[in-house]
Design a binder for these strands. Structure first.
Lengths: 132, 132, 132, 132
DNA sequence: GTGGTCTAGACCACT
DNA sequence: GTGGTCTAGACCACT
């Protein structure tokens, strides 16, 4: 799994790892059931502290996106994106989406362009397309 | 201007203020040219320190969303959302949107529902609709 | 005298007035001995408080750039830009110039471009050209 | 890094710190990639509050001149002064330069002396000389 | 009356 | 150990 960090960003590294993994799953680069690199391996690859990778994986586990076991390490949950989403998580997501959309509107991005950009992004995601 | 904070949220208070103001502008509750409460006043209303409000207003100013002067306090920029958006800001926005969309996809929100929710949110925004 | 203010700027209005007057003198739009508008007139033209204009004029007077008398109001000093500059003022000016140049260099403006831009600016100034 | 403040100056302390750091980078005393003192350390050295240093560093970060991380503290961006300067920033810079030059002209500094002083200042800057 | 700056100290987040 | 956030209060600058 290739994964690019932006050390200049104000976003914490563990959050960036979490975000990139989520994107990789959405894009289909990380299939359901696939293994993530070991925390130590990824830490070496990214030249960061292994506790930071640990924190990212733990976050993904708590979000129900991956499973972690001593035997098989971290794997993408086979049912990720299958069952209905948790109402609580969806409500929270919707609030964040609202803020993000409001920002674009206030910045003067035309609605058509906005919807287009969202469509393009969604088209890049192979998971959950309904034809799976 | 009514504005609700979540003190339990991990999002800093100043960021929440910024987000709520942006939403209020997008919704049309805060019109272009309208005054925001003074930093001290809003601090009293929200039962927080005025420096925190200051930081939020300063952030909005640097984003080009409000104008601040010692004379007239903070006002929504009359040209907010008028001119074309800055490419840099739009690129940054798109990255954040991608991450957010990926999360929804991975959580199993169907695409139709996703697009619907976005449409509903956009319909709640009065600004920049083109027919104004 | 036409004079444009930027109310969005963080620079105080009195400082902007002072700066614009200095530029007008350098450009030759305000000749040595010429009268400035009365403080009340300028305040009306700029839609600002007349105390603010007063403060700007007082600053120009203290800098030795204009003379103020009850009889003839504010006039550009006839000897502005004639005699040798005050060493103290020049030293102070040089420090500010150093900071400004350092900023351009750090931002990556090539030296040739830097010198060119300065030359162009100086060419727009009619006063003190030596051929007067 | 040695750095001298003028507590009597009307320029805010955080701005002075920012200006001195920019000069140190232009002079080559602070190389690309070099570390700045920690906010707390510099505050002790300058006998000021660490929040003031924080504000200066935050300003430098927003200007894209330094990078800040909790791990390695503040470092001069390796690419500072490398890529082409932002047009917006250059336009703003040019306006300030115009005002500064006008002031010198009005004060009676001869053009030759003016250009000489600028050349001398630029010669003191090791960064971006093209022959490096 | 408004925002801006500075000091001071507490506590937290990240690595 | 580093920076980030928040509170608190004083004083100043601008209009």
């Amino acid at each position: 799994m290739h994964l690019i960090l932006d050390l200049d960003s104000e976003a914490p590294i563990y959050q960036q790892i979490r975000d990139r993994v989520v994107e990789a799953i959405a894009e289909g680069r990380l299939a359901a059931g696939a293994s993530l690199p070991s925390t130590r391996q990824l830490a070496v690859d990214l030249a960061i502290n292994f506790h930071t990778v640990n924190k990212a994986y733990d976050l993904l586990r708590r979000e129900g996106i991956i499973r972690i076991s001593r035997k098989s390490g971290a794997v993408v949950r086979p049912d990720a994106g299958q069952g209905p989403a948790e109402p609580q998580a969806v409500a929270d997501w919707e609030r964040r989406a609202r803020t993000l959309l409001a920002e674009a509107v206030v910045r003067g991005v035309p609605r058509e362009e906005l919807v287009d950009r969202i469509r393009v992004a969604l088209d890049g995601f192979g998971v959950g397309r309904g034809d799976t």
